[in-house]
Design a protein around this nucleic acid. Structure first.
Lengths: 342, 342
DNA sequence: GGACTTTTTGGAAGCGCTCCCAACCAATTT
DNA sequence: AAATTGGTTGGGAGCGCTTCCAAAAAGTCC
């Protein structure tokens, strides 16, 4: 590894440190011949400028942080996060930023990580996956004054920039689809009540029913935890109430629900139709293939980075809001292909 | 955000910059009373030392890089990577390091990312997920002289430190289990030939058969790509050859194989037994529950960090090697519960 | 109580870069 | 020929920390 400095390059190229710096930063006012000479020396020596020195002098680290709070402990089981991370990483590559990952997995982590995040000279901005309602992390980050973009609508969104998918509309469309297909007793397996995602999707479910003049039957609403097992148990609780369709707030829960339905000796979609949310890879190959809502997860992450860079460049006021659209993917589990069309 | 410096803290505490620095770095030679006074000022002001300045002065960034090469594009679909990342992140938190994530998703990324990785003053060390054979990334990283730990045995392991699970033994145990259960025509759906993982698992398969005096029938070995779809097509290719058991080199492929078997109207395990590899969450709830090899993915990541810190502290020579054990999880898909025991 | 050792402290010199400012130079204008 | 302009270059002052070194303070021993 070379321990070359700007000074060394300057000497070898017969120019001053400043000139080399200008070449490195694509400053316009450098004679073409000099620029070439300097670049040639850099190429030959394999010189790379020291990141820390650059950050210290320029007060920009070209580094963004992605914080996944403890409450999203499903990081390793839910494909949502890898997808999101991928979108974010792609954007970072594209804009020449480096991505630092902060995975909070314990209360201890949180106290150790927070100072690292808010330490100056490390991050130019932070992306935060919104977690449970009541999570303190967002407020602390906000207080530290570092540019912040939250992924997923925070419970208390005043003054904060965020990106999100339109969960209300997505759920509304999915449930409207079931209504149009003629189902009478449409249940939902909602997510845990302490997240805005769950609230929004439940809101969409409610709105779709009310708008068609249906009554809301609270016994048709059960709560899962976004996991396969959660969906399984939720569906077992639902079976005695005899729904003829169920909207699950995640594909994993839909899968669990389907398992419970099959185990009860019922058919999908003939006895109970199922609609999920996410469009994970296995949705297409499930038995039967799952009708579900596709959300643009990676694009959401990409967009979050763009918004963050905007905040860094142009200031955090006013807060930016981006809501992305979803798409209903109709397959077999909703019975659309077997029943009357709308 | 405070723009305080060491100097400010020093003034307020009535000591010199050096003393504050010593307090910050847990240097022993500071009078207890002075230490308390300084800490109190730090607490009151909410001061955090500037990371870039620290790195520049101390020549250590307390930051590690995790590089996932392009060839592991399955980052978002295969739960292996989230799990691994989680183990790595936990170790980083534990040892007070920050983790930088480099997700290479295109050839362009690779040329842009490489200079960022090898830039001095950014990373103290690098973790590299070993990818395809022929990947140039490892050699470039090795040449840059930065401490490096590869995750998964590299094809050319001379002089490089790596951690891996014992894939040969794992596959050997899984296939031996099938042999003991009395299966006669044991097939394997291997991974792509250009990775050491696939080679090792195939090696374990071969060894288990040969050791029991079986012949290796090349037509019973087909290649998948570690995905569900790949397993599905591989199994379709295998069906005419009438295996009575199949060892898939990943759970995803095992799942695809099961789908193909069911579609052909055959039963699992009565007609064809299936064993997977990974023990992903869905393995336990598959129909029937999947017998598979559990690998300690998160611990592997954790260990990789520990090895890397060892290299950073004590030099990269000699190269370190860590091979971790796996565990065969027996469920229903292998027929162990229905057939004679070993 | 003085000579010695040990602990504690402050000052100063970097770490390798950016960026401002002044100096320089060549080309153009008067 | 002198003055003006605008592009190009080098020097110097930081950025905020660590760390070495020497000085000061505190302890120890006879």
């Amino acid at each position: 590894m070379s321990n070359l400095t700007l000074e060394d390059i300057a000497r070898q190229a017969g120019v001053s440190r400043s000139t080399v710096s200008r070449v490195l930063n694509d400053h316009p006012n450098v004679r073409e011949e000099v620029r070439r000479r300097v670049l040639e020396v850099i190429r030959q020596t394999g010189y790379h400028p020291n990141a820390a020195a650059r950050t210290l002098a320029s007060q920009r680290s070209l580094m963004l942080g992605l914080v996944l709070p403890r409450s999203v402990s499903s990081f390793f089981s839910d494909p949502y996060f890898p997808r999101l991370t991928q979108g974010i990483a792609q954007a970072c590559n594209h804009y020449n930023y480096t991505l630092a990952l902060f995975l909070v997995s314990s209360a201890e982590d949180e106290t150790k990580i927070y100072p690292r995040i808010s330490r100056r000279g490390l991050l130019d901005g932070v992306l935060l996956q919104s977690g449970q309602i009541g999570d303190q992390l967002m407020d602390r980050l906000l207080a530290s004054n570092i540019p912040l973009v939250v992924i997923g609508r925070p419970f208390n969104p005043e003054g904060v920039s965020y990106v999100d998918v339109d969960n209300v509309n997505a759920a509304y469309n999915a449930v409207s689809h079931l209504v149009r297909l003629g189902y009478q007793r449409i249940a939902t397996i909602a997510g845990p009540n302490n997240s805005t995602v769950s609230i929004d999707r439940k809101e969409g479910y409610t709105r779709a029913l009310l708008e068609r003049g249906r009554k809301i039957d609270p016994s048709l609403i059960v709560e899962g935890d976004f996991t396969e097992a959660g969906g399984y148990y939720a569906m077992q609780a639902l079976l005695p109430i005899r729904p003829d369709a169920v909207f699950a707030a995640s594909d994993a829960m839909a899968l669990g629900a389907m398992r419970a339905i099959r185990e009860a000796g019922l058919r999908i979609p003939e006895d109970i139709a199922v609609v999920g949310f996410d469009d994970l890879p296995f949705a297409a190959t499930a038995m039967p293939p799952l009708t579900t809502v596709r959300q643009p997860i990676a694009p959401l992450g990409f967009k979050a980075v763009e918004v963050l860079l905007d905040l860094i460049e142009n200031g955090v006021q006013p807060p930016r809001r981006i809501i992305m659209d979803t798409e209903l993917i109709v397959r077999d589990s909703c019975g659309a292909l077997k029943r009357r069309s709308p």
